[in-house]
């Protein structure tokens, strides 16, 4: 009597953790990628912030931002549509995705200014 995996809908409890989990994974990738790159092949400090490393990490940041924005939008539209518990979950999910997106943008900002490995 195994049920099929529940569809990932806006009311699913996974929405409680999905956005911030993406934030965390992005954060780990960012910090880990930077640390490993600086240990293996640090770009010359004379390049300032305009290095390939900053560029790659910046692209990763933008992609994550896009994903979170899309998820937030999906939850938000569902929150307008639904009622009761599903609405609560969807609205909560939308808020959390939005916050995660803002968090990605905010934490990613220094990429524009700082040289990577100093």
């Amino acid at each position: 009597m195994r049920r099929p995996l529940p569809r990932l809908t806006a009311g699913h409890p996974l929405q409680l953790v999905l956005g911030l989990t993406i934030w965390s994974l992005w954060f780990v990738a960012l910090y880990g990628g930077l640390s490993v790159a600086c240990a293996v092949a640090p770009p010359a400090p004379t390049q300032g912030a305009m290095t390939g490393l900053n560029l790659w990490l910046g692209l990763l940041t933008l992609a994550t931002l896009g994903l979170l924005g899309w998820l937030a939008r999906a939850c938000l539209t569902a929150a307008w549509r639904e009622r009761g518990r599903t609405r609560f979950m969807a609205a909560l999910g939308a808020g959390l995705h939005l916050f995660s997106a803002a968090g990605v943008a905010f934490v990613g900002l220094p990429l524009v200014v700082l040289p990577p490995c100093l």
Partner: peptide
């Protein structure tokens, strides 16, 4: 730790 990494944690 590199300043950029510190900036990530500072912002977080």
């Amino acid at each position: 730790i590199p300043q950029l990494a510190q900036a990530f944690f500072s912002a977080a």
